[in-house]
Amino acid sequence: MNIVAPTLEEIEYVIDMPEVSYSPPAFTVTTVPIEHNLCGALVYKAYYDSTEIAADEEFLSYSGSGGSLTAEFLDKATYGYLIDTTVPYSLTAEFANWPSATNPTVSTSTATSDVLYLDPCDHLTTFTPATQDNIPDDTYSGTEFSWNLIEFTVVPTFCIPTVTYTISNVSGPSLLRTEPNGTHDYTSFFTNYDLTLDSDSTGPADGELLVSASQSHYDNQELAPGTYTFTLMCTDQKGNSVTTTFTWTLLDPCLNPTIVQYEWDPYYLSYTISDTVYVPYVSYTWEPSFCRQTMTYT
């Protein structure tokens, strides 16, 4: 005659989350030499941290008679100290008609496991990106544009300080003039931002990205005209991340330039058949002046 305990699972409870119930497997009875149930039913007791628990307890409740165990709601403010700790719990069984107190040799059995208290900021209930503003279009004016972070939705809200932001990728148009349809990774170019919300006073403001494009960026092929897609990544303290994007478009300032021809004094443009004269080159200006230009005569 033997009472066989089941294997109990670890009860994981995330602090500040709703209660969690667990129904443990049943204890079984084995008999020899024959199979029978002459010994009657089993009775159970549950223990939390070595203290017998009842139906309605502060940490772990027990419905009794082999029923479910319930890890009760614990708010973070009061019970945050439990995060990342384990507390043992157990179930014992014995025959109702043959209590061990009066039958020292009778079979009893105990199954043990733990209640593991988890960090709610590792188990966000809501973690979604917020739509970000795009940066206004520019034509390499040199104007500095300020983009400001719109924080993602993080629940529980007390976990907001635990998430971090970064611009994980910036993809833009190809730098190569010969590859108008290609792309280029500009991540290392756009680094003038502060997405650490720590109220520091250096560099850009918290949550701010500063960008600018000048003529030299165009000339030196550091920023090509086209749309730049910034990938904004938010990561929780457990390493889970969500992303969203925003864009910045640089327009080609050399598209449809302004060409103004300079008119020479007609005296210089008349030729009387006689000898060699030199006709001045046609003079003109083009805007923006940093655009490349070539001229051919016909």
């Binding site: 003039r177 050399c254 080159y281 046609v282 005569y297």
Partner: peptide, 17 residues
């Protein structure tokens, strides 16, 4: 005397005047 001025775009798309 005709002069053709080409101010190409960044991606070398010709724009002639």
């Amino acid at each position: 005397i005709n002069s053709t001025v080409n101010v190409p775009t960044y991606y070398d798309v010709p724009q002639t005047n």
